[in-house]
Amino acid sequence: MKKLFKSLAIAGILGALMSPQAMASGDGPKNAKNYSFSFEGIFGTFDRAQLKRGFLVYQEVCAGCHGLKLVNYRNLAEPGGPEFTKTEAKAIAAEAEVNDGPNAEGEMFDRPGKLSDKFVSPYPNDEAAKAGNNGALPPDLSLITKSRSGWHGSLKSLYLYSLFNGSGGPEYITSLLAGYADDPHGEEKEGLNYNPYFTGNWIAMPSPLSDDGVEYADGTKATVEQQAKDVAVFLAWAAEPKMEERKKLGFMVLLYMLVFSVLLYLVKKAIWRNVKH
């Protein structure tokens, strides 16, 4: 018990040291809004309908500039994802034009995409992407929710906050897409847009979403925030397509180990029963 108190005291002092007041820093990006998503938590799974809506937003809005090059078209029909039927996924793939070759004559040729192809990026290379976007490079979105974090300054340093709320990547994407505003100081910058969630607050990408900018087949009202959430969830899946499998397996593994450890404890206790220690 004494030891427990001691460790609690230490944890308390450390906690105080890392409290928000102690950590106040300059004006960085704003913390993302902590949206709640269906895939959070130990048993969290993706909402299939939401993934399909998010895919639509990606396809109709983002894909013009942003690639998704680590994802294959076949992934769209795999379990744990949007779970399009194979026919639907094939049709989606076929809309893309894939440069293939060389053929028997040594020529490169274009053909419709197949399930085994990776998502075709909108630009052939980074230079072309920059040239088409005033010198700014639209990042590939395959890992965007894992490579960005939503919590900064005081929230980020509260290590327990990230343990229970994740890195805030999907929250950041949602907040950013739905967070365009006018600069509070009334400033305007050529080719840049004010967004409090972006590092430095000025982002090259103009606000991409608008109310009813896409038409959802399932009747969901396509507000900016709804589209932002949907596409963030779709990108969260694109970054971590094995998430559902991982959580399912993890639960079984922990359950097994829990039972195993109880048995081991009882065996250990039985073996040690005659030893004073």
Partner: peptide, 17 residues
């Protein structure tokens, strides 16, 4: 296992993606 399956990137850094 709890980290591996439920918070696999907690001890890593977002920038490394």
């Amino acid at each position: 296992a709890a980290f591996m399956f439920f918070a696999p990137n907690y001890m890593g850094h977002a920038d490394n993606y």
